[in-house]
Design a protein around this nucleic acid. Sequence first.
DNA 1: GTGCATACTTAGAAGACCAGAA
DNA 2: TTCTGGTCTTCTAAGTATGCAC
Length: 651
Amino acid sequence: MSDSEDDVPLGQRAAAAPKPTPMQEDSSSEDDQPLAARAARTPASKRPSKAVSDSEGSDDDGSGSDDDASSGSGSDDSDDVPLAQRRAAATPAKKKPAPAAAVAVLFEVVLERLVLRRRLLLLVLAFIKNFWEGFREVLGPRHVIKSLDKCDFTPIYDWHAAEREKKKGATKEEKQQQKEEREAKEAKYKFALVGNFRVEPPGLFRGRGEHPKMGKVKKRVYPRDITINIGKDAPIPEHPYPGQRWKEVRHDSGVTWLAYWRDTVNPKEFKYVWLSANSTFKSESDLLKYEKARAPWGWARLGWGGMGARRARKLKDFIVDIRRQYTKDWGSSDMRKKQMGVALYFLDKLALRAGHEKDEDEADTVGCCTLKVENVECIPPNHIKFDFLGKDSIRYENTVEVEVAVYRAVEQFLRCDERGKRKAPRDMLFDAFDATDLNKELKGLMDGLSVKELEGLMDGLSVKELKGLMDGLSVKVFRTYNASITLDRLLAETEDASAATTVDEKKAEYDRANKEARFLGGVAILCNHQRSVPKTHGTQMEKMNAKLDGMRDEITELQAELALAKKGKANKEGKKLNPEAVEKKIAGKKRALAKAELAAAVKEDLKTVALGTSKINYMDPRITIAWAKRNELDAKPRPPPTDSSSRRTDS
DNA sequence: GTGCATACTTAGAAGACCAGAA
DNA sequence: TTCTGGTCTTCTAAGTATGCAC
C-alpha cells in the first residue's frame, strides 16, 4: 500500500480511489497497490484465484483483450503514460484518426472508468458488510454499539498514522535497535532445542537385568516408519531418503512430541522425539510436578513465592489427614482397605515406586503394589526386610522398623489372600488392589472433601485451582515429596549446626549435605539410586590409600623429631628443631590426613550411589535457591549457550 | 472391570569434556 | 604436554499415569 494512499481513511479512499489504470491492474507487485485498487480487479468471492488469472491476461473487465498490456508487463516507463495515449500508441499509426474516432476512444475511456468506479464502490460496501459482521461478533449481543454509522474510528486511524510517522522518523541506529529487540522477543518462537533428534540406530537390544528380549535385533528406522508432528502451516521437513515419505504428518498441538515411531523390538511401544529437558515445556512440567508434591504438605522452611506460609500450614494439615486415614485403615476388617493403608505407609515412609503390572516379556521387577511374598520378610518383634529387584533390575535391600499394627498386617498378608487362601512365595503381597486402584483412591480423597473443607485449605486459591493441584496426587508424588523434603531437612541440619561464615565454607557445607558419608541416609539412598562400581574405583582407592599411608608415616617421623627436639637433640639430618614449630607442623599434617581420610571414606561409601538422578528428578531446585538466599549466597543459573544455533527453546 | 494405547518421566551406562595435577 | 578424575551429555531402557473401548 502506498504511503500516500495509506494516509487517507478507508471511507474516503473508497470514494476517491476508482482510477486504476489497466497497467496498475496488471502490476506484478500487487501488495504494493492500494486495497481498493486490488479489490477492483477481482470479485470479492473469488479474489485469491482471480488475482492469478488476471495476471495471466483475462478479459474480465469486458474492455477487450488486454494481452498486449498485461502479458509483457509492458515497458516500465509506460506506467506513467495515460491510458488513452497508450491505447493510441499500442495501435500502429498507419493514418491519423478521424475526429469522430477520437471522440469514440474518449467515450470508451470515460465509460470504462465509470464501470470501474461502480464496481469499486460495490466492493467497498462488501468489505464494510463483512467488517460489521465480524465486529458485531466481537462486541457481543448486548453491546451499546448497534451500527457502524455513528462509529468514529479516527482516533485509531490517527494513532496508527502517528506511529507510522514515528517509525519513519527513526534513525538508522534506532531502527536497528528496534529490529534487534523484535528479534530477541521472537527468537523463542523460532527455535526449539530438541532433546533426542537422532533416530535410534540399528543394533542389538540389551535391556537391563535378565530381560527376555536381550539380543534381539533392533532394525533400522526409516522415514516411512516415522510420524511427525508439525505446525499446520509449517513446511514438511526433508529427510535423507529419496523416494520415501513420512509415515504420517500430524498437526497435533495437544501433545509435546515432535515425532514417533514404533519400537522394532517391542512393537507395543513407541519411541518419541521430545524437546530437551531445559525447554520451557519441560521446565513448566517440572514446576508443576514440584508444586503438586509440595501442595499437600508445604515445605516447612520455605518462605518464597507461590505459596504463603499460612496456606502451606493449612495444606500441611491435609497430609496429616491422609496419614491419619491410612493409619486407621491398618485395623480395618475390609482387606482391600487394610492392604491399601499399609501400601500407602510404605510409599510414604520408604519412597518406593508404585509398581504397575508387567507383561511376561519384560524383566521380572517389582514396585510397592507388585511386591511378592518372597520379597518381604517379617523379623520379630517389628522389623520388615525388603529384598527385591526394582526399576532397571536394581536390587532394593532394606530392613526397617515399622509400627506394630503394620507388622501384624503384613504377617497376615504373607499368610493368606483376600479370600483366606494360603499364599505361595510368588503370590502378590497386596492381592486386593493394584497401582491404578491406589491412584484412584488418592484422587478420591480430594473428591471426598466438601467445598467448606476446601475453603479451609484454600487461603486465596479457588476450589478449581486447589482441585487442579490436588488432582495430581498420585503414588509417585509421595516419592518426589519425600526426596525434596529430605534435602530440605539435611540442609536445615547443616545450617543449625553450622559455624561457616565465608562463601567457600557455606558452599562446602552444601556439597557435604549432598555427598558426605554422614548424610548417606539422604536422598539418593532413600530413592535407592544405585550405580555399578566405576571401573577405575579400585586403582583410585589404591592410590588414595598409598597416599594416606605416606601421610601417616610422615606424622610418625615428625612425632619422633618432636621427641628429640624436646630433649634438645638434633634430628637425623643433624638439625636442632624448635619443638613448637614441629608441633604446629604435626597438627597441620593431621588435619590434612583427616581431610584425606574423609575423602577416601566418602569415595568408598558412594561407589555404588548415583547422585545425579535425585538432583535432576526429585530435589526441587527452589529448595537449593532458598537455602542459598538464607545463607546470602549468590546462586545463579548457568547462562544459556551463546551459539545462535543452540538457542534455548521456548516454543 | 479389564486390557490396551498413548504420552510422558525417571533411570543408569558410557563416552565427552574440562580443569587441575604431574 | 600428558594424565587423571570429576562432571556433564547423550543414549535409550524402563518406569508411571490415564483415557478409552469393550
